[in-house]
């Protein structure tokens, strides 16, 4: 006797996750923002990553934010600060 199953999975294709930011045509001399998730050493990892990027492509860190609390979503005021900031891209990191 044939057994008919429903999938218990809801796939991600229907999920509204917004759209991707436009891609860069060049990585030279961009303005970088850093957003730490607040865990220990996240700031160290971010700075290291930014320094590596700058060494290779130039540019500068112009914004540094810390959401303080690793396991909660980024507060609205910080998201607002990111969207209003004059940066070309953000780097975020999980530390520990």
């Amino acid at each position: 006797m044939t057994t008919q199953l429903y999938s218990p999975v809801i796939d991600d294709q229907q999920r509204d996750t917004g759209s991707l930011a436009p891609r860069f045509t060049s990585l030279g001399n961009l303005k970088i923002g850093l957003l730490s998730n607040g865990k220990h050493n996240a700031d160290v990892l971010l700075r290291f990553t930014a320094d590596l990027f700058i060494e290779r492509h130039g540019g500068a860190v112009v914004l540094e934010l810390n959401k303080r609390d690793a396991s909660r979503p980024c507060p609205d005021d910080l998201v607002g600060a990111v969207t209003k900031a004059d940066v070309d891209f953000m780097i975020t990191a999980v530390g520990d």
């Binding site: 044939t2 057994t3 008919q4 199953l5 429903y6 999938s7 218990p8 999975v9 809801i10 796939d11 294709q13 229907q14």
Partner: peptide
């Protein structure tokens, strides 16, 4: 699957 998981049933 579809968003509400009422996909086409799988036959076994």
């Amino acid at each position: 699957t579809t968003a509400d998981s009422r996909n086409t049933p799988i036959s076994l």
